[in-house]
């Protein structure tokens, strides 16, 4: 350990200045803006913005479109986060099996969607979901299911986005779960086998509890990422049909950068932040209680 404060600050300065000026100051500024009526007239002259107290937050409370966006985002997070974690865990357990050959090849295969550009794959999926020419409906018809207007029917638009998101993201958590599984000591399973435990019992009493910290981590990062849903609906549905896929971030983007209602938009951003923070705290609490 070196005790040379000046050198330390020299090394820290560039990164910390960048983070301070282009991250912390904007966060504080956004918080202030959320209490003003900053709009397109203030854009040319900041002096036109006035403090309005909690008006933006009150307006949000009475804004049906905001509640729709919030509801849609929760729908998306509550369904796709557990779903993609389950798919990730299943894939990880299968790939961790001693029976499997070519593990790294399968792992690579499942991981490809994670690294690819979201916008590009959303475009691909938009055509896969095409009601007339899309592959999904064609395949469904082969097994006798009537074709679905995936992106045009408000009942199916969100499920369509959820399916795509699970496909796109499960590989990431799969990798983390594989690492978690490899950290479980082998002797636990051996001991359980001697006691005559079945495969399911081993899963329930060894794998699940031993993976708990990994699952908490995965749960939190997945939830944080999913609350920021934006590009998928932007490309595939533009928030439609009938606002059935309008997300919080898209509403924030529209209000802020299309209509330049920046005060209002900043308030939306802070609601998103609050939601993410509460979600994280709840998950940590649940985990803590489970451990006691």
């Amino acid at each position: 350990m070196q005790n040379k404060t000046i050198s330390a600050y020299f090394f820290l300065a560039p990164a910390l200045m960048a983070i301070f000026v282009f991250f912390f100051i904007p966060v504080i500024a956004a918080f202030i803006i959320s209490f003003t009526d900053f709009d397109i007239y203030s854009l040319s002259n900041y002096g036109n913005a006035r403090f309005v107290g909690f008006d933006n937050y009150l307006r949000l409370f009475y804004d049906p479109l905001f509640w729709t966006a919030l509801q849609n985002t929760f729908y998306f997070v509550i369904v796709s986060a557990p779903l993609s974690i389950m798919v990730s865990l299943t894939a990880a357990i299968m790939l961790n099996s001693k029976l499997v050959k070519f593990k790294s090849l399968f792992r690579l295969n499942f991981f490809i969607p994670v690294i690819t550009t979201l916008i590009a794959v959303a475009i691909v999926w938009r055509f896969i979901y095409h009601p007339k020419f899309g592959f999904l409906n064609y395949t469904l018809e082969l097994v006798g299911i009537e074709s679905i207007d995936w992106l045009g029917d408000p009942n199916f638009s969100m499920p369509a986005i959820i399916i795509m998101s699970v496909w796109k993201n499960f590989g990431y958590n799969m990798i983390i779960f594989i690492a978690g599984l490899q950290n479980i000591p082998e002797y636990l399973y051996e001991a359980a086998e001697i006691e005559g435990a079945t495969g399911f019992q081993k899963f329930k009493f060894i794998t699940i509890p031993m993976l708990a910290p990994t699952t908490l981590f995965v749960g939190i990062i997945t939830m944080i990422g999913y609350f920021q849903l934006f590009a998928e609906p932007y490309i595939m549905t533009q928030g439609g049909p009938l606002n059935s896929t309008l997300s919080i971030v898209q509403y924030m983007y529209q209000e802020g950068f299309r209509w330049w209602n920046m005060g209002y938009s900043a308030a939306i951003a802070f609601v998103l932040f609050a939601v993410i923070m509460i979600g994280t705290i709840i998950q940590m609490k649940i985990q803590k209680n489970a451990n006691v």
Partner: peptide
């Protein structure tokens, strides 16, 4: 502060 979503900073 990693928990703060980047969207919050975008307007300012």
């Amino acid at each position: 502060s990693m928990i703060i979503p980047a969207q919050v900073t975008m307007l300012p």
